[in-house]
Simulated scan of single mutants.
Amino acid sequence: MRILHLTDTHLYGDPFARHYDRIDTAAALRGLLARLEGLAGIDAVVHTGDASEDGTAESYRLLHEILDPFAAALDAPLAIVMGNHDVSAVYGEAVAPGERTAPSQDRVVALAGGARVVVLDSSVPGAGYGHLDPEQLDWTGARSPRRARARRDRARDPPPAARRGDPSLRGLDLDGLDELAAVLDGSDVRIVLSGHYHHEMTGEIAGIPVHVAPGITNVVDPVGAGADEQSRALSGVSLVELGEGAPRVVSSVLPNAGDTLADAERPVYRFTPEQVAQILEAAGR
């Protein structure tokens, strides 16, 4: 089984809006998908959060205008996850009427061979961190049978048990990890997919691998920025393969097709520790 893992498109309803006054996010997504021409044998396309930057119905319609035909050409189901910049209720009203939108956007996407992608919504309105309430944890547990043959993949934002190297940003992580681990422990879940951090990262929860894909609108440099947080005009994508043994994941990071400055050496942003502290004050726990 092969899953194409996309994340963090940060689309706008306003076609003239630019992320950090620089990145045309729709062009970034279209450019990345164009570079994937010729890709085949994909069983699912999963987008793990921050589909929208402004949470507007127009941004979600644009997302599906771009991704629906792409997934259809691959003959692959499409799963969309809500992130901290998204508005679940608006997405449900604009794109997926009749699906559950409160308190969270929960969906199960059926794949071939009995496998499923289970979509979890950990977004907290107005916050940058994630939370799974008891109701959603119970719902998750009911869809995570023990010793079952079906292979399931969980998709969510922010990620569990894959923490940023910079401890100052832990306030933007997911809370309730112990409760989620208890739900997943001994289940048939094969891998947890997530976005939120804009750079590739791995971890595990309850012995289950966790993969965070690099962002499409920009890619954060988690190593070379020192005490700062720095993002580059790049776009990333991951390919997840599930079969016998451990999941296999490979990622590509490519020039950002939506960079209006066309200057890969100039960071999209560079936040000092003081600026990061202000972000945490505004959006962290």
Rank of each mutant, 00 (worst) to 15 (best):
L132R: 08
D188W: 02
G41Q: 12
I80R: 10
D86P: 09
L169D: 08
A72E: 15
L177F: 00
G38T: 06
I191F: 00
A246Y: 00
D24W: 08
F271L: 15
R151E: 14
Q275H: 07
W139F: 08
D86G: 07
V46N: 09
M1S: 12
V210P: 00
A76P: 03
D228P: 01
P158N: 09
L4H: 05
V45F: 04
G224T: 07
P255W: 03
E244K: 06
E37Y: 00
D175K: 00
A283N: 07
G226H: 01
A51G: 05
H10A: 09
A127G: 06
V95S: 11
H64V: 10
L111P: 09
P167G: 08
D75A: 15
S187G: 13
V90P: 04
Q230S: 13
D121G: 06
A102L: 14
L4C: 05
R35T: 12
V118Q: 02
Y91A: 12
T272V: 09
A206P: 12
A246W: 02
P15H: 04
D50C: 08
V183E: 05
P77H: 03
R232G: 03
A213I: 01
A227Y: 01
G41D: 13
V220L: 14
R270G: 04
P159E: 12
A76S: 03
D166N: 15
D178W: 02
A182H: 08
R18V: 03
S187P: 05
A79W: 05
L234F: 05
V95G: 02
